[in-house]
Nucleic acid binder design. Sequence first.
DNA 1: GATGAATGAGTATTCATTCAT
DNA 2: AATGAATGAATACTCATTCAT
Lengths: 210, 210, 210, 210
Amino acid sequence: MTAPLDLHKTGKRELQKEARRSAIIDAALEAFTQQGFTSTKLDDVAERAGIGKGTIYLYFDSKENLFEEVVRQTLFPFGVAAEQHAASFTGSASELLASHFRNFYEAMSSPKIPPLMAMISAEALRFPVIAAFFYREIISKAHVMLRSIISRGVESGEFRVDANDIFLQLLVAPVLASVTWNQQFHEQAPIDIESYRQMHIDFVLRALKA
Amino acid sequence: MTAPLDLHKTGKRELQKEARRSAIIDAALEAFTQQGFTSTKLDDVAERAGIGKGTIYLYFDSKENLFEEVVRQTLFPFGVAAEQHAASFTGSASELLASHFRNFYEAMSSPKIPPLMAMISAEALRFPVIAAFFYREIISKAHVMLRSIISRGVESGEFRVDANDIFLQLLVAPVLASVTWNQQFHEQAPIDIESYRQMHIDFVLRALKA
Amino acid sequence: MTAPLDLHKTGKRELQKEARRSAIIDAALEAFTQQGFTSTKLDDVAERAGIGKGTIYLYFDSKENLFEEVVRQTLFPFGVAAEQHAASFTGSASELLASHFRNFYEAMSSPKIPPLMAMISAEALRFPVIAAFFYREIISKAHVMLRSIISRGVESGEFRVDANDIFLQLLVAPVLASVTWNQQFHEQAPIDIESYRQMHIDFVLRALKA
Amino acid sequence: MTAPLDLHKTGKRELQKEARRSAIIDAALEAFTQQGFTSTKLDDVAERAGIGKGTIYLYFDSKENLFEEVVRQTLFPFGVAAEQHAASFTGSASELLASHFRNFYEAMSSPKIPPLMAMISAEALRFPVIAAFFYREIISKAHVMLRSIISRGVESGEFRVDANDIFLQLLVAPVLASVTWNQQFHEQAPIDIESYRQMHIDFVLRALKA
DNA sequence: GATGAATGAGTATTCATTCAT
DNA sequence: AATGAATGAATACTCATTCAT
């Protein structure tokens, strides 16, 4: 007797396969962020995932492909969350902007994300596919959102008129900078993210205010 | 009777050795920034420098040591230049700050520097020595300078009082962000550094002005 | 239900692995004795064993570790055999001693052993582990046995009383000397082991006789 | 004005060259015996000799040639000394034999010789030239001498008639054995050469006595 | 003659990928 | 499907030898 026809392939087999795939991605994320792409051995990934080395190749074409999938899978939820947030926001443009930046910092507080961001920067030159994906799925969406919030603020008179022309990188840069800084110079001079964040938001609003 | 002891060893031999050392560093900078540390083969460095493979080891202990020297030699001039500029500045605090940021962007316009910065970020986790050097020689000196300029501006009444407490990373982040951006997303959406810089400086002053 | 746990792991896989390990050791013994440790290339060992170069590292940690295992595996049987012989001997002390020395020469007649002995001597200074193993497993056991045989002969009145104090190296040296000699000077003046052995035993007994 | 014709080339230049050559050989002897042939770097030899690396090649064709010369020069004096001793000996055959063995042990007590002997054994297989030289210059001469002493003893009735047929290796082996032993197993169980030597000589005479 | 800078052939070891079981 | 044993291409580093100075 065969399994009932299932359009979404949610049979036992498929669920197991999906779980296995996730386990490998989790293991790989750990390994990649701790050791960097080149220094990570698939042996190590397999061991972390509790599977045989060859099994990885049943789910991914190559180490590079695995890397791409790790980035994709890990960052995808943030893209989705941001879009949902964008779709449902209410209130003044200033409040929305502040709330958005708080979300950015929130996302960056996950123990997985900062090392991943660092690794993406590190390997971006050699993985243009990753850079493109990152831009398309994360960055450009975030920019569209920010642009629309600012546009609202301009219309409502909260922000000065030429705020529409601002380089968004000027606004966002400090978020990434804080992450990078604490990754690289935590020993020398750690940043207290809490107050940094407040000052940053204050800063942004000051720059946009009418 | 022998030649007088030459304190600076400027004999032909020594000059050639220094030239050779420089050639290797130049070649390595190229290779490292194009391919990343791990993917760079010393064979390739040797070929670019027009020398034999073994020769590298007459000047550097190991690939890692070579990497460190590349970073050191390339960034050192900027540390020196910044200090000289710091020692000789005059004029209003706003003007000084603006001039300083223009210098930052100037430094980043060298074709060597942006890739080098990217590589440093990339490998910082695995080369704490590099991170420490970078912090000590470049970052902390820049911070000291900025702090003193802001302090002047506060005293003269140009800047608001609590400007002294600002996180300097908030001010500087966009410089690095622009470099990183054009490295990674030049294809997708290049930044025009010229106008970006002007907006950035305007931004900074707006945030500090009394 | 799974197969019963097999304590000795005699599955097909394990048998093959053991065979592979042996093949590598045999190949390495050949290579090492013909060319010496340093001059032996693992490429060559792999080729002799009919396997890939990397496979060696599935069984041995390093070239040095392989060398140690070669010595261990090759000499171990002789240690065991000597102990068994020691445990079961009967007859007069003179006969026993003679039989023991004949065994020594017998062992040395294997085509593998003399080159191996030479190599051990050759590399002993740089492989103290090998020297220690050799002393512990082979030499000291042989000495214990000889000592006990002589002691019997003294008790039975066959040997003179102070035979107990004799340096055993004086008795054994000619065995190794014959091996070394035929290794080094076979061209110039080969020793006929057969008569050498008889004369040696005669010599030993003459030295010990009451 | 040129130097006077000198048949033996004992001019200042030649003396210096000879001294330089000796210095290199001494340095090489040290290095080779401490580290073995393959592991010795000519850089190290040059440094020990206080000269430049290239200079070695003005005196020796290659590393192998240097090795051969080291052995030759170091062992040559012993061959000469033994011949002189042989030419001038008087007294009973037993006394002569004893005196000869004492000389052997004496020679072996030099700190240079035992490591050199070990090294010769170690590399003999790869340096047949060395083995041949060693046999010709040292071993065979020693054998001729021993043979003649024994022959005298037989004639004088001190030694038994068939002593003439004895394998000389049986007599000499313990000398080399003691050296080798203390090289390899000094840690585990050092031999006291003094008493070993006495016992050995006693042993030899006991084997030969009528 | 003497030097030591330059060379590049040579080698142990790693690890992504394959494939027989 | 899962495994892990086998592979061999790839690479940092060494060192005998040469040769311009």
